[in-house]
Design a protein around this nucleic acid. Structure first.
Length: 922
DNA sequence: GCCGGAACGTA
DNA sequence: CGTACGTTCCGGCA
């Protein structure tokens, strides 16, 4: 606890001008209370920051929360209060509104975007351990006044933060008001002098002045014709409002008449604007002592609010004490150093069969990361094995243990660990848990599965440095704890986490998903990543040239047309040219103005035919392609292959994602784009032997098949059983024509709708996509559901069930939690509903191809084939086929992919081969 | 230097 | 007012 706020300085020097011993801190300085009018400052923040720039991806606006929190952090930093509290109004009537029903009337309705933000601010305050106070029947201002009165009485300094001028009456030599001038960053201090300068009266008479002048914010009309100057003159002359009332008849002129005519209003104003200082508050001053934030609560909350910079600023503010406070928790369990074969053998024998958590100590130099040591922690022992140096015998003992399937291991991020140690020729097996994956299965929509984050969240355990980022200098010092400690801590944390997760995995029925699918898949993915895919560097360079030519041609033509050079990659500059200078019709509105995306531009072309648009689109296309190619060229490794990284814990539905580079979004839809697939080619083995061909194998219409299976719709199922063109089949039923009479237009409508259903498409969305009227779209959907009613029932049931359970499930039992299904924010709720429609389908497809990958890998290994899997693109696998293995591999791939799930419809797999990815497509 | 927004590639 | 991703560029802000 922060000792600086200890307010009982017993044993220390007594203060000279004691008014009460509570008024002093231990170091002799006065206590300083910061109290904030929550609502008024939340509103200020709300209007200072545009709501559209501050919202979570679930649609909750956070501008007021952000602004409020930022303001608070700044205030704490600048003012260094020893005590902090925030007061809020309640929605209930106050004595003011009871007396005067129009009180604060005439205010425009609270904007929709403000909704829910006060609750969030209160949550932030809880996480920051700052008391929030509200009192039935009273306003926040009265609470502020009471607190200011109490604190000043105890000889504290008080700062009242409020956007309400009534607070000025509280100012005295102990109390100042921080009154925001504009926004929430500019909050000047109003002391007695400042108030007198501005309103010509001392603070204790401000309320008299306000009663005369009126306060429009509170809907309190004053005396017409009387402004601050006149009011101040009277106040000075008669010593205050009381004196004025006694001398009413002496005041001459028109304003005097006006005053007499409105004197009841003035009296009422004065009654209403007097703040109460004698409330019975549920919290006393000592409870407001400034505390460190609840770190894990802040982490959770700021995660969901998507506040990243604020999080840092907040922790920086409390930074020093933080590390001190938690240093105990961060220390590694005591561990032994194992350096010789004998020591290793003995230690591992001692921990035989116990689940052992393994973590690496690594060192990164010039972009490459090397393993420098391995930490092993069990429930009863901990060891660290430095790899540099490690003699051959000892390395053999270690290698055998790591590779042993009989030695159960817990790892965090198995795939990365597997890849790192494989660079040293070591193999990792026997894994029984990967805490990153467990964490993901339990909570698939987390932002991060970093060990430190999970440990903090689930265990309230703080670990500072991750095992992976010991700095170079320390890493060399293998004798000390510098390298060992973070790795041992990491292994320790993973062990604790694994225990913590075990029960939850069982509860959720996720054990099979972990042990039977994700864990073995992690190793398959690791090998795919290590293998990489061969590319033709010359091919990439040729494309770079070609696309560059297109870019400069389209660019200069575009510049010629508009008569100047702008940055065609800047939507902002484009907006100026298109809508201000060329005066083209406005497109759909976006946050920053009007859209210039491809849809909007195409639309403009049909409307105006302006030649600039065509060049712009060509320029955009070509730059996008060049970017892709450029990214690929930079990613080619020394082995002439591109090694992507698959992320197994990112997509909330259970899909993989691919990064660095992303090989799951290589163009395929346009001719020019497909040229990029030509540079992905068949390559050589590590032994230098060439492979024979690439093979692609993909599921056709897997999502619609899953939809047919899950819904049990007889019509859809028979479509797949008959093996007919799905969209033609569906089209023939909806439009009531023979399959062969389904036109292309009909087919594409049906296709769009079928896929749209998987995403929770509305008739509005469908109409936009197909450029038809909403009416026509609605009819189309009605006909569709009339014919395939079980689909509609299924989709409805999904959302209902999910609302009841709180989650959706895939065919393998993978869950996605959707708490927003019961949100009272419509936008949030509808987003969650669409996610609920999609998650079981997209997720089941992910389950299926993951199972297929395990099957294919296993079959390849079992048959001793050299052919290998290279890529996965959601419903497609790319393999590299060794000489003479084409037929056998094709057969096994078909078998494994088709057999990966037992659905009520067949899983159709199409396979192609060729020298390039493009040629292998079918 | 960081971060959000816009745009666009894939399934 | 259609789900799930990753990357790049721009421009405002610190």
């Amino acid at each position: 606890m922060a000792s600086s706020t200890d307010d009982t300085p017993e044993g220390s020097e007594p203060s000279p001008e004691q008014q009460g011993r509570g008024g002093r801190r231990a170091d002799g300085s006065r206590n300083r209370l910061l109290v904030i009018d929550g609502h008024s400052m939340a509103f200020r923040a709300f209007y200072a920051l545009p709501p559209e720039n501050f919202s979570t991806d679930t649609g909750q606006h956070t501008n007021a929360v952000y602004g409020f929190t930022a303001m608070l952090i700044n205030l704490i930093k600048d003012q260094k209060p020893s005590h902090v509290a925030v007061a809020f109004d309640l929605d209930t009537p106050t004595f003011r509104s009871e007396e005067y029903t129009e009180y604060k009337g005439g205010r425009s309705k609270t904007p929709e975007e403000f909704h829910g933000q006060v609750d969030l601010i209160i949550k932030v305050m809880e996480a920051m351990r700052i008391p929030t106070i509200s009192l039935d029947g009273y306003e926040a201002d009265d609470i502020l006044a009471t607190l200011a009165y109490q604190a000043a009485g105890a000889d504290w300094d008080v700062q009242v933060v409020s956007g309400d001028r009534d607070a000025f009456q509280l100012v005295n030599d102990r109390v100042t008001v921080l009154y925001p001038k504009q926004g929430v960053t500019n909050i000047p201090q109003m002391d007695a002098e400042a108030i007198e300068e501005k309103y010509f009266v001392p603070p204790h008479q401000y309320s008299d002045l306000a009663a005369l002048v009126g306060e429009s914010a509170d809907n309190l009309p004053g005396v017409p014709g009387v402004g601050p100057k006149t009011a101040a003159k009277w106040i000075k002359l008669y010593g205050g409002l009381e004196g004025i009332l006694e001398n009413l008849d002496k005041i001459g002129g028109k304003v005097g008449d006006s005053l007499r005519a409105n004197i009841e209003d003035v009296k009422r104003n004065r009654r209403l604007n007097r703040l109460l200082t004698d409330l019975d508050l549920p919290v006393d001053l000592d409870a407001m002592v400034s505390q460190h934030p609840d770190r894990s609560a802040i982490e959770d909350l700021f995660d969901s609010l998507q506040f990243n910079t604020l999080r840092k600023r907040l922790f920086d503010l409390f930074g020093e004490e933080e590390s001190e406070e938690e240093s105990d928790e961060q220390s590694a369990p005591p561990h032994v150093l194992l350096e010789e074969a004998g020591e290793l053998t003995q230690w591992f024998a001692g921990t035989n069969q116990a689940q052992a958590s393994v973590a690496l100590a690594t060192e990164t130099t010039g972009g490459t990361t090397d393993v420098v040591g391995i930490a092993v922690v069990t429930s009863s022992a901990a060891a660290f094995i430095p790899l540099e140096p490690l003699d051959a015998d000892a390395e053999k003992v270690l290698g055998d243990w790591l590779a042993s399937t009989d030695a159960p291991k817990i790892v965090h991020d198995f795939k990365t660990v597997f890849k790192l140690i494989s660079a040293r020729g070591l193999h990792l097996a026997g894994e029984v848990d990967d805490t990153a994956i467990s964490g993901y299965l339990i909570q698939p929509d987390r932002r991060s599965y970093e060990l430190a984050d999970l440990a903090q969240y689930h265990l309230r355990l703080s670990i500072t440095a991750s095992a992976n980022d010991s700095s170079g200098q320390q890493a060399l010092d293998l004798g000390g704890n510098d390298v060992a400690s973070p790795a041992v801590v990491a292994a320790y944390a993973a062990l604790q986490l694994s225990e913590h997760f075990a029960g939850q995995l069982v509860e959720r029925g996720a054990n099979q998903l972990l042990g039977g699918l994700e864990l073995p898949l992690a190793e398959v993915l690791a090998r795919m990543e290590l293998t990489g895919v061969a590319v033709s560097v010359e091919g990439l360079e040729r494309l770079l040239d070609d696309f560059s030519k297109t870019i400069s041609a389209a660019g200069s033509e575009a510049y010629r047309i508009i008569g100047k050079e702008i940055n065609l990659g800047s939507p902002k500059q484009l907006q100026t040219v298109l809508f201000d200078e060329l005066e083209l019709p406005r497109t759909k509105k976006i946050k920053t103005g009007y859209s210039t995306d491809a849809d909007a531009l195409t639309d403009l072309i049909t409307k105006t035919g302006h030649p600039f648009l065509e060049q712009l689109l060509a320029y955009r296309d070509a730059t996008k392609l060049r970017q892709t190619v450029e990214g690929l060229r930079k990613a080619v490794g020394d082995d002439g292959r591109i090694h992507t990284t698959y992320l197994q814990t990112v997509a909330a539905t259970g899909r993989l994602s691919s990064t660095n580079p992303n090989l799951q979004n290589i163009p395929v839809r346009s001719d020019e784009g497909r040229r990029i697939r030509e540079v992905f080619v068949v390559g050589h083995g590590r032994d230098g032997n060439p492979y024979e061909t690439l093979m692609t194998a993909d599921y056709s219409q897997i999502e619609m098949r899953i939809m047919a299976h899950l819904s049990g719709d007889e019509g859809l199922i028979s479509a797949f059983l008959e093996g007919e063109d799905l969209h033609r089949f569906v089209g023939s039923h909806i439009f009531g024509v023979a399959p062969e009479d389904v036109t292309n237009a009909m087919r594409s409508k049906v296709k769009a709708m079928s896929y749209g259903l998987v995403y929770g498409l509305s008739s509005f969305g469908l109409s936009k996509q197909l450029a038809i009227s909403v009416d026509e779209a609605r009819t189309l959907m009605r006909d569709y559901f009339e014919r395939f009613g079980a689909v509609r029932d299924y989709l409805r049931g999904i959302v209902e069930q999910a609302r009841k359970d709180g989650f959706t499930s895939t065919i393998e039992g993978r869950r996605r939690y959707l708490p927003d299904l019961s949100s009272d924010n419509r936008q949030l709720r509808e987003m969650a509903e669409r996610a609920a429609l999609n998650a079981p389908i997209q997720g089941s497809a992910a389950d299926i191809i993951k199972k297929a990958m395990l099957g294919v890998d296993e079959a390849l290994t079992q048959r001793g084939l050299r052919s290998r899997m290279l890529l996965q693109v959601h419903d497609e696998l790319v393999l590299e086929i060794a000489k003479g293995e084409t037929a056998e591999v094709e057969a096994l791939v078909r078998e494994q992919m088709a057999g990966a799930a037992d659905l009520s419809v067949p899983l159709d797999v199409s396979v192609g081969t060729g020298a390039s990815w493009h040629d292998a497509a079918h």
